[in-house]
Design a protein around this nucleic acid. Structure first.
Length: 812
RNA sequence: GCCGGUGUGGCGAAAUGGCAGACGCGACGGACUCAAAAUCCGUUUCCCCCUAAAGGAGUGUCGGUUCGAGUCCGACCACCGGUACCA
């Protein structure tokens, strides 16, 4: 049968599904001692169509899953849908279609596309976060975290559009305006819910060391967590009260000439009540949009009437409100040391403040020796900190701060998990009872894009009874950040139908941690930090075991078109469906794996690459067709001709190499080139080789099995063409991965390279197990090397292990 | 600025300290064909050379370690990515 992917692939996919070959076992079905492999890809958002990035991601995962199955592992390989979020709500506003309908349609569409690619997902484990049998567990976990004290409420500013009367997400705000209507957007404080991610900051940082993750991702996470050691120090305000600062340079304390406070600092807000000019300054800083604040680094300050007292000198230090001090880092207050901090320096120059030098060092910003610092003068910076903390007698202490912030999970949106709390006049904000879960999204809402969240207009949703006192109360209308959905989904795959718990611990114990997680680098910080945080919370709740969810991480590179990202607006999208309906899924899969190492970008310059992949598959098909089927057994090694032996050696070397590439190196592109090399070697076997039938049968049988993870459909077809009927040998995807035969891993003779002073000068053929003395003599006698040896003194002869090279060092 | 990564033919790339450029794409030449497509065979780093043989050079630059470096170490350059008033 020729290569006819368009008709064959759907037929083979049907066979796989009918045979249940993708089924992953429950913990109770697993035999004791069986090896498990959890292959996970990042939860996709059902935007409507799959793109080449998905194709690359899923193909890679599928190659690994299929390989591990053939290697005898029990494999977990599921997929689901990250199906809450803004686009569905926007579609509802624009087209009047309910988010649930839009979402379901998209999932159906994308699932169909993915199935056409022959990815071996266990669809019985499919989950979708917008369904209440999933999001009820978000709510359940929220309540557990509430109990543990891992949830709190606090004020935080949101993007507020007065004209629309609604809150907007950061990505909806462009140039300080709503990207849809152009109405202005301002910052407005709102009381919201937070997870205490900072509680785990140290552990999140320390556990990174043990993870087999790309170095750049680990670095990004370290920076994101941003651990910084320093000291807290309280300054007395003139009159009444204190201002606390965080500093990493307590040693520069004598250089303080001003105090800079965030415009949102409580002391500033209080002072602004009676100081109109200060109030105006704060309002002006607040009116600057997020993007402007990011791009501009002009320092602005406003001198207040306040002063603090220097704890050592007793001098009065002026207090400024400044735009460069962030309220959500440290204490929102900075002691200004213009001589030894670049930002303070710039600020002091602008506002004419003194810049006294208190540290002697190579560069003005470095640690060094204290000068002009009273009794501390002469101390080293490090020692001065300790001495000052002691002297300050409780007023200061060494502490650590983090850039990592607590996770604000409130969204003033409809299409998300309702936060399961209730506002009661008598009892305040109280958690819903677990037995009342799920708190379902109401259907009686309209999507206008104007006014507050649709949830606040639904009587059926709002009206409830207080779970504490039973009096009429109002339900919380905030929904959860969709990152909550994706922070534990891989555990729900393990037990998707559980109605008692989010997942049974037995399932998690059997399958966790995830052996390989593959997804885009864009999730290096947010998702991958939140997911790690959740896993630690789940561990502390006794629901999961182990410190980390994802042992190995691979971030696949993007698929580009002519050097830039494929996007609708550029009109440069290559649709996977179109490629599959012309070349078939196997050719697309093969190309995706072969084109470049997985972590690099692929540029889809044209169809040449996929043509090449298709050509290879045709050649392989033809080879199997031409061969037919023979029942001959492989003869003993000593009866084979040299050409036959050469082929079998190539075969076994390829088996060893591909196994290593897939099992240990996670290097996929060379798997394809290895297959190509082997197929070339198969073609090189002389037509008149005496044992041609038997040798080819043996080699093709292994070849087809090794091809199976990458091009599974064609492998299945060729597998049966080679005489492996379904009834006796089953599916190719269920066959065993070939084992390399040590007898055929090396040839009888080996070509030994002769180097003279590091340059290749000749080659000699020697028996593979030739002794050192034999190799040395043969090399020294090598005819081609003689001109380079004649009349020179042999200093030494190096015989490296492996026996493939002799290095002669000469002098003169 | 800081942090991380990457620099190899015309292109995508391989080389796990041991023959640099495997494998593929493209290009060129040939076979088959009336012709084309498809397919098959061959050539394809640079210099020297009619060609070949034999040399020589060559993995961003400069140095180092080693019998031997694309690979390890140091400095620099370029590009890509992350991040940026983080006190």
């Amino acid at each position: 049968m020729p290569f006819q992917p368009l008709t064959q692939e759907p037929e083979i996919q049907r066979r796989w599904l009918e045979s249940g070959a993708f089924h992953a076992k429950r913990a109770s079905e697993l035999l004791p001692g069986s090896k498990t492999f959890y292959m996970l890809v990042m939860l996709p958002y059902p935007s409507g169509r799959i793109h080449m990035g998905h194709v690359r991601n899923y193909t890679l995962g599928d190659v690994t899953a299929r390989f591990r199955r053939m290697k005898g592992y029990e494999v977990m390989h599921p997929l689901g849908w990250d199906s809450f979020g803004l686009p569905a709500e926007n579609a509802a506003i624009k087209n009047g279609i309910h988010p649930a309908i839009w979402t379901r349609q998209n999932i159906e569409e994308m699932k169909g596309q993915i199935q056409k690619m022959g990815i071996s997902y266990d669809w019985d484990r499919e989950i979708a976060s917008f369904q209440d049998d999933y999001y009820r567990w978000n709510q359940w976990l929220f309540l557990k975290m509430w109990e543990q004290g891992d949830v709190f409420r606090a004020m935080r500013t949101v993007n507020w559009c007065e004209a629309l009367g609604t809150v907007l997400a950061n990505e909806q705000v462009v140039d300080g305006k709503d990207e849809r209507t152009g109405f202005p957007v301002t910052q407005k404080p709102l009381e919201q819910y937070f997870f205490k991610t900072t509680k785990y900051a140290d552990e999140l940082l320390e556990c990174l060391d043990g993870l087999d993750w790309p170095e750049n991702v680990k670095t990004m996470q370290r920076n994101w967590i941003g651990r910084s050691e320093g000291a807290r120090l309280a300054f007395d305000l003139e009159g009444d009260g204190q201002i606390e600062v965080f500093t990493t340079r307590l040693d520069t304390l004598f250089g303080v000439t001003f105090m800079a406070l965030s415009t949102e600092h409580p002391a500033i807000e209080k002072a602004a009540e009676t100081d109109a000019a200060l109030k105006a300054f704060c309002d002006q800083v607040a009116s600057v949009s997020r993007e402007e604040r990011l791009t501009s680094d002009v320092k602005l300050g406003h001198r207040t009437a306040l002063h603090v007292i220097h704890p050592f000198t007793g001098e009065k230090v002026p207090v400024f409100a400044a735009n460069y001090v962030l309220m959500d880092y440290g204490t929102g207050a900075v002691m200004g040391v213009p001589a030894h901090d670049e930002r303070d320096h710039e600020f002091a120059l602008k506002y004419g403040l003194p810049i006294p030098k208190v540290i002697e060092s190579e560069s003005e910003w470095d640690l060094g020796t204290l000068v002009n610092s009273g009794e501390f003068t002469g101390l080293k910076s490090e020692d001065a900190v300790t001495a000052m903390v002691a002297k300050l007698n409780g007023r200061a202490e060494k502490t650590t701060t983090y850039k990592l912030k607590d996770w604000g999970l409130s969204r003033q949106r409809y299409w998300g998990t309702p936060i399961p709390t209730v506002h009661c006049e008598a009892c305040g904000v109280v958690p819903e009872k677990p037995e009342h879960l799920p708190v379902r999204l109401p259907e009686d809402v309209a999507f206008t894009g104007v006014g507050p969240s649709p949830l606040t207009t639904s009587r059926s949703f709002l009206d409830c009874a207080c779970p504490v006192c039973g009096q009429p109360a109002r339900r919380e209308t905030d929904t959860m950040d969709t990152f909550v959905d994706s922070s534990w989904y891989w555990l729900r795959y393990l037990d998707p139908k559980n109605t008692e718990l989010p997942f049974a611990k037995a399932e998690s114990d059997a399958w966790m941690p995830v052996d390989l997680y593959v997804g885009g680098i864009e999730h290096a910080t947010m998702h991958l930090i939140y997911a790690r945080f959740f896993y630690k919370v789940l561990r502390d709740l006794g629901l999961a075991s182990g410190p980390e969810p994802f042992q190995k991480l691979i971030c696949q590179g993007m698929v580009l078109k002519d050097g830039s990202k494929m996007s609708k607006s550029k009109g440069n999208i290559v649709d996977p469906d179109a490629v599959i309906s012309k070349y078939g899924a196997d050719a697309l899969r093969l190309f995706m794996i072969f084109a470049a190492p997985i972590e690099k970008e692929i540029d889809w310059t044209g169809f040449e690459g996929i043509e090449g992949a298709s050509r290879f598959l045709k050649r392989v098909t033809r080879m199997v067709e031409d061969h037919g089927v023979t029942g001959e057994a492989l003869p003993a090694k000593d009866q084979l001709t040299p050409a036959e032996k050469t082929l079998l050696i190539k075969l076994n070397q390829t088996i060893a190499r591909l196994t290593d590439d897939l099992e240990r190196r996670y290097q996929f592109n060379t798997v394809v080139s290895g297959l190509m090399e082997l197929s070339n070697a198969l073609g090189d076997l002389p037509a008149d080789a005496p044992h041609r039938g038997a040798v080819l049968q043996h080699a093709l049988d292994a070849f087809v099995r090794m091809m199976s993870p990458v091009a599974p459909h064609l492998a299945e077809q060729l597998w049966s063409q080679l005489g492996n009927q379904l009834e006796d040998r089953g599916l190719c995807m269920q066959a065993a991965w070939p084992e390399a035969d040590p007898a055929f891993l090396e040839a009888d003779e080996v070509l030994v390279v002769v180097q003279v002073n590091g340059k290749v000068r000749g080659r000699v053929t020697l028996p593979v197990h030739a002794g050192e003395e034999q190799r040395r003599e043969a090399a020294l006698a090598c005819a081609e090397a003689q001109p380079h040896l004649a009349g020179k003194e042999i200093v030494k002869v190096v015989l490296p292990p492996g026996g493939k090279l002799v290095s002669i060092v000469v002098k003169g």
